[in-house]
Write a protein that binds this DNA or RNA. Sequence first.
DNA 1: TAGATTGTTAATCGATTAACAATC
DNA 2: TAGATTGTTAATCGATTAACAATC
Lengths: 216, 216
Amino acid sequence: MQKSNTKISMAVIRRLPKYRRYLEELLDKGINRISSRELSKIIGFTASQIRQDLNNFGGFGQQGYGYNVAALYEEIGKILGLDNVYNTIIIGAGNLGQAIANYTNFEKAGFIPKAMFDINPRLIGLKIRDIEIMDADNIEEYIKENNIDIGIICTDKEHAQDVADKLIKSNIKGIWNFAPTDLNVPEHIMLENVHLSESLYTLSFLLKHNREQEDV
Amino acid sequence: MQKSNTKISMAVIRRLPKYRRYLEELLDKGINRISSRELSKIIGFTASQIRQDLNNFGGFGQQGYGYNVAALYEEIGKILGLDNVYNTIIIGAGNLGQAIANYTNFEKAGFIPKAMFDINPRLIGLKIRDIEIMDADNIEEYIKENNIDIGIICTDKEHAQDVADKLIKSNIKGIWNFAPTDLNVPEHIMLENVHLSESLYTLSFLLKHNREQEDV
DNA sequence: TAGATTGTTAATCGATTAACAATC
DNA sequence: TAGATTGTTAATCGATTAACAATC
């Protein structure tokens, strides 16, 4: 669907989930048609930007009419790969790992937690929902035997690179990293970081300088 | 410290925590001097960008020498407001709220969780570490009586705006929002969102299109 | 002092916005 | 058909990179 050769910028990619979220809300309200101008008012991007963004992936609108909400929602889901199912494992079964294991919305979107791993013998063998916490020694074996796509790193920063190395060796496809460190990962493995403290420190900056963000 | 009138872009602000993190690592290694060129190699920004970024806030370097690691680390901490102490409350005492309450690194950086709130009677009265889970009906009263600076919203999306409204009424200074929705907040209240599903969907896009990120 | 490296200005690059012809 | 709104090109704006004089 993406136009030939054009390289989509990360700025555009990171806006896509937000489009999808607002389109879902419109769907829930039973609205089945929207113009870039109307969408602009509720989502806060300019109408021009909305049209530019969407046209990176094809002409989803119709002149004189606007966009079909259901169709556009569906298309953006496909662009994001949410029509796929991904098998995931969570490494680090502390509070954060458990929070993610319990968060069923990810599962609804196709990200299935198959197992959790920890080094703490007190946690090994427990289950979160129906997801077993296993010994971290078995990560590589488990990935290979169970077709795991994504590894979610919820360890402390000291263990994160070791875990990442195991994931890499086992031919994982992507890593979602919550450890407060930057991981070394080969180019063919996709990496997305969630650096919570960087987000908190940004809020701290804004508080200190009493400045609202211009963008979301 | 910030130069008069110049408005610092969010892009710069969001890089500051990363500078601080790498400088901390250098400190731990006992390195007390670094040039923009050397820092560039380990942090991955261009040397030019590093110098530009830092010069938004003043001349911290010395020609022919570079930057003093300890001093720069300290300065960036101050710029981020990490020399302050913030009182926080966590609203929503589910797994995510508990994970944040248990994450002592935030406390070390000056963000003190004073109380948690929930509407679930089974949770009310429990303690996470020494942080009590209280009835969400008491949020407004508690904020006013305890000098709370930051509200951390860990509820589901259905309750998030209601909670935000209570925080706003109680003159909170900042909101750190983990609920998967955009909040309506007046301009004088600082808002920082952590939209986990947007991050996960971005990873999904990268997997589908097998593309590494050019940045971070 | 000579060499190194900053601070800062200028050039480039990329992303956003504006404008409008195409067309439903 | 006339009006509305897209898709797309051109203009603008902002952020990044390059270059180099200042200076430690």
